[in-house]
């Protein structure tokens, strides 16, 4: 276990380093921030002063080394636009995105697992067929459209839920959270459902396929031959086996949700990281873009590690020491 963790951390460091180079070069290649940031009336001297202040006069590799050196000290540069540390900008927005992503993932599991289980156990029941048809809708309806429809129905027509923003927040551990206040939760419901629709469908289909496969296995028949109750067979023998693929996919999806919840955040004006990155790309706020991508890489590496460890807890045949 320790060897595995060490090796994984080294690999993670390698991934982050490679990613930093790619991100830095990729971002450097698009557009010239000077054109946007400095007013067209500024004279040549002012321009050069600004360029030097931003460190844009150095050759690319020097810029990268400076960036890397600063990054190691936790400094990912200052936003050109807000003149604030890019990392802090992102971390400020992170709780909003994080709680939305967690809400959506929890909803996906709480709703998707039981429905998938039912559809797998009674594949021919009309309700199961309805669930499967619904999951196709969940897959294929565009997120922004569903978001707009939710606002139309529940905010505009019925007036049950607020349409935009985070609502009241509480500061815990120096970060602002919505999920601890009633108003915040009311604000969270629609965006979380919007974000989880695709995931619910995914979990339903994965669970159903897993259950149908597991029910045919000899160990299920043997469990029945032992005289176990159907509840125990389903909830212990089958469930623990299907959790393995579900955990893998949901883990990866969770990373994706954090990184790419842009659409939902835009529709519901949710002040999260997704909205920040879109705004930053529009104004070519380089440090924020780079810092954002670095944070996302770190997040993915961490999530993958957690998934692997969970995997080994669920499936005793997976040995973490064996290979990394």
């Amino acid at each position: 276990m320790t060897v595995f963790l060490l090796r994984r951390l080294l690999q993670a460091a390698g991934v982050v380093l490679a990613m930093s180079l790619l991100v830095f070069l990729g971002v450097y290649a698009i557009g010239d921030p000077v054109e946007i940031l400095i007013s067209p009336e500024a004279d040549q001297q002012e321009r050069e002063r600004a360029v030097r202040a931003l460190g844009l006069d150095l050759p690319i590799w020097r810029q990268y080394l400076v960036f890397l050196g600063n990054a190691l000290q936790g400094d990912l540069g200052r936003s050109f636009v807000f003149n604030e540390p890019a990392l802090r900008l992102i971390l400020d927005r992170m709780p909003a995105t994080l709680e939305l992503a967690i809400g959506a993932t929890v909803a996906a599991l709480v709703i998707g697992l039981p429905l998938g289980l039912y559809a797998g156990l009674r594949p021919n029941a009309p309700l199961a067929k309805g669930i499967m048809a619904g999951s196709i809708l969940g897959f294929s309806l565009p997120t922004f459209w569903v978001g707009l429809m939710l606002i139309m129905v529940f905010a505009v027509q019925l007036g049950w839920l607020p349409s935009t923003g985070r609502g009241e927040t509480v500061t815990v551990l120096g970060m602002r959270w919505s999920f601890l206040t009633g108003d915040g939760i009311a604000h969270m419901i629609m965006p979380a459902i919007n974000l989880s629709l695709f995931k619910i469908s995914l979990v339903i289909r994965l669970t159903r396929a897993g259950v149908r496969e597991a029910m045919l296995m000899d160990y299920v028949k043997f469990a029945r031959a032992k005289g176990l109750s159907p509840a125990r067979i389903t909830l212990v023998h089958v469930f623990k086996n299907i959790l393995i693929p579900v955990v893998t996919v949901v883990g990866l999806e969770f990373g994706g949700t954090i990184a790419f919840s842009v659409v939902t955040e835009s529709v519901f004006a949710w002040p999260g990281m997704g909205k920040l990155i879109i705004d930053s790309i529009n104004v070519l706020d380089r440090p924020v873009m780079v810092a954002y991508l670095m944070v996302i890489v770190l997040m993915f590496v961490t999530i993958n590690l957690v998934v692997d460890i969970t995997y080994s807890l669920l499936d005793p045949r997976v040995r973490l020491e064996g290979k990394a």
Binding site: D218, Y219, F222, A223, R224, A225, K226, H237, N241, I244
Partner: peptide, 20 residues
């Protein structure tokens, strides 16, 4: 089942649940 009447299966590699 499993109490008064028990059964032993053909393939021992498949009859025990791998994750329990």
């Amino acid at each position: 089942r499993g109490n008064r009447i028990a059964m032993i299966f053909q393939d021992p590699m498949m009859t025990l649940n791998p994750v329990l």
